[in-house]
Simulated scan of single mutants.
Amino acid sequence: MSGKLGFDEFKELWKNIRAWKLIFREFDRDNSGSFNTHELRAALRSVGFRLSHKAFGALVLRYGNKSGLIDFNSFIHCSVKMKGMFRAFNEHESGGQTRMAVDEFMHVTMYS
């Protein structure tokens, strides 16, 4: 929460970015340089992010352009945010603190 990355955090982030880059290339099936909603959902599922239609819609509104397309930079931002949100949910859930479904948590925290 300091806004700074330690070396171990940087290594983890760099590893994730490289993995997400490969996923972007794999799921950008039309080679447009951006994801449409079908490509995005498939890419997110491949890394274990499962969202309801409501949470997915919020994600597209937050990270997509006017046409609903998500470019590589936005995909990276989205992936970092989702990883953090899932981690926070799981940490709170395991401690008995969370009193909402993961989908509701994702929807509520998408804009924070």
Rank of each mutant, 00 (worst) to 15 (best):
R62W: 00
L61V: 10
A101V: 15
M110Q: 01
A58H: 09
T37I: 07
H92L: 14
E12H: 03
H107M: 11
M82N: 02
S52L: 06
F72L: 13
H53F: 12
D30H: 15
S94Q: 15
H53V: 04
V102N: 10
S112D: 06
G57W: 04
V108D: 03
S112V: 03
F24W: 09
T98N: 08
N65F: 12
F49L: 09
F75V: 01
E9W: 07
G48I: 01
L13Y: 06
D28W: 08
T37D: 12
E91I: 11
M1N: 10
M1H: 13
H107T: 08
E93R: 13
W14T: 03
A42F: 10
S34I: 06
S94C: 13
K4N: 10
R87N: 04
A55M: 08
K11F: 15
N73E: 13
F86V: 13
G96L: 09
A55W: 10
A19R: 13
D30E: 15
H77T: 05
L22W: 11
E12G: 00
G68N: 11
L44W: 00
F27Y: 08
F72H: 07
G48Q: 03
Y63D: 01
H38Y: 14
N90F: 07
K15A: 12
Y111P: 02
L61S: 11
M100T: 15
M82F: 05
F89A: 04
F56G: 09
V80Y: 05
L61Q: 13
D103T: 11
A88T: 03
F10L: 07
I17A: 09
W14D: 03
L44F: 02
D8N: 06
S94N: 15
K15L: 11
A101Q: 15
F10S: 04
M85P: 01
M1Y: 10
F86C: 03
S52T: 09
I17N: 08
Y63H: 02
H92G: 11
E9K: 10
K15M: 10
G95S: 12
L22E: 11
G33E: 01
I76S: 06
D8A: 03
F35R: 06
E93T: 10
N90Y: 09
A55D: 08
G48E: 01
E93F: 14
R25S: 08
A43E: 02
S74W: 00
R25H: 10
F86N: 00
M106S: 07
F72C: 11
V60E: 05
L44N: 03
L61D: 14
I23H: 05
K15C: 10
S34D: 14
F105R: 05
M85Y: 02
L40K: 02
V47A: 03
A19N: 13
S2A: 05
W20D: 00
F89K: 04
G48L: 01
T98I: 09
S79K: 02
G64K: 05
Y63E: 02
L51F: 00
K21F: 11
E26Q: 15
V47M: 06
H38P: 00
N73R: 14
T109K: 08
I70A: 05
K15Y: 12
A101C: 15
C78F: 03
K83Q: 14
F27N: 04
H53Q: 10
A42Y: 12
S94W: 12
I70P: 00
H53Y: 12
F24T: 04
